[in-house]
Computed example of a mutant assay.
Amino acid sequence: MSEKSSRRQIMSDTLYLQIDQNVEVHHPHVYLQDVAQLSCSNSKVLNRCRVLPVANLEPGKPGRYVFSVVDLIELIQKKEENLDISALGEASFLVTYREEAVKSKVWTWVKAVIICMATFFGTAFAIMSFNNDVDLTTLFGQIYQQVTGAKSSGFTILEITYSIGIGAGVLFFFNHFGSMKLTQDPTPMQVQMRVYEDDVNTTIIEKVERGKEQ
């Protein structure tokens, strides 16, 4: 009777896998706990599954590798035959292998300065191009002359408020100034970077899956 009960208990064990679309690892020997969040009521089964080898990547060759959840389930079932598996999340996912790099504060500051300069001059060029296309100087001069009756000197209240408004608008739009944020919502830049990352991951996965079908 006790043997039947133990069998029922073994059959009732369920392993839950939650996998993100892109998982980053820093060592070539990839285990199940590196690519998925695991949950199981049986701690012994959980510990065995955590250290289950998934892949042995080639050391010194970072890259992105596509894996299928079905392959993971088959791999687990070979080791745990009486285990029920419930996969949550993506059907296929990427494993991004990057070697752990030694961070240099000097290089980090150099990259930050380069990005800031590129952003500043790029934005300034875009604003000046827009102002030149719509001939904003002439437009402000006409508005100022119609309202005040005097000829604009090119440095009036319109130009001053317009300049202040551009700077304030940029801060409000990007919701970010140094380490300060106006709200806890993600900035438009963070949203666009996330969309770009999702598009790249989806493209890589679809490309690999189409190659398998051919």
Score class of each variant (00 low, 15 high):
residue 171 L to R: 08
residue 74 E to Y: 10
residue 180 M to V: 05
residue 111 K to F: 08
residue 47 N to M: 15
residue 196 Y to D: 04
residue 17 L to E: 03
residue 131 N to E: 14
residue 109 W to T: 10
residue 35 V to I: 14
residue 190 Q to G: 02
residue 112 A to G: 12
residue 181 K to H: 09
residue 96 T to E: 15
residue 24 E to A: 10
residue 102 V to D: 15
residue 20 D to W: 06
residue 31 Y to A: 12
residue 193 M to N: 14
residue 145 Q to H: 13
residue 35 V to D: 11
residue 60 G to W: 15
residue 206 E to Q: 06
residue 138 T to F: 03
residue 116 C to I: 11
residue 212 K to L: 13
residue 172 F to S: 05
residue 114 I to Y: 10
residue 91 A to R: 14
residue 165 G to M: 00
residue 200 V to A: 04
residue 159 E to S: 10
residue 151 K to R: 14
residue 204 I to S: 01
residue 103 K to Y: 09
residue 54 V to M: 00
residue 174 F to Q: 06
residue 153 S to R: 06
residue 48 R to C: 07
residue 147 V to G: 09
residue 141 G to T: 14
residue 100 E to G: 12
residue 52 L to F: 04
residue 2 S to P: 11
residue 191 V to W: 03
residue 50 R to E: 04
residue 104 S to R: 06
residue 197 E to K: 01
residue 16 Y to Q: 06
residue 171 L to M: 10
residue 32 L to T: 09
residue 143 I to G: 13
residue 71 D to Q: 11
residue 69 V to W: 04
residue 121 F to Q: 01
residue 4 K to L: 14
residue 92 S to C: 14
residue 77 Q to A: 01
residue 137 T to L: 07
residue 54 V to Y: 03
residue 198 D to H: 09
residue 89 G to F: 02
residue 193 M to K: 03
residue 33 Q to L: 01
residue 188 P to N: 01
residue 98 R to W: 08
residue 74 E to G: 12
residue 156 T to A: 04
residue 20 D to Y: 10
residue 43 S to I: 07
residue 197 E to H: 04
residue 128 M to Q: 15
residue 157 I to S: 02
residue 182 L to W: 05
residue 51 V to P: 00
residue 115 I to W: 11
residue 58 E to Y: 12
residue 148 T to C: 14
residue 82 N to W: 08
residue 190 Q to E: 05
residue 84 D to A: 09
residue 66 V to W: 00
residue 26 H to V: 09
residue 163 S to Y: 00
residue 173 F to D: 02
residue 22 N to T: 05
residue 145 Q to C: 13
residue 128 M to H: 14
residue 206 E to P: 06
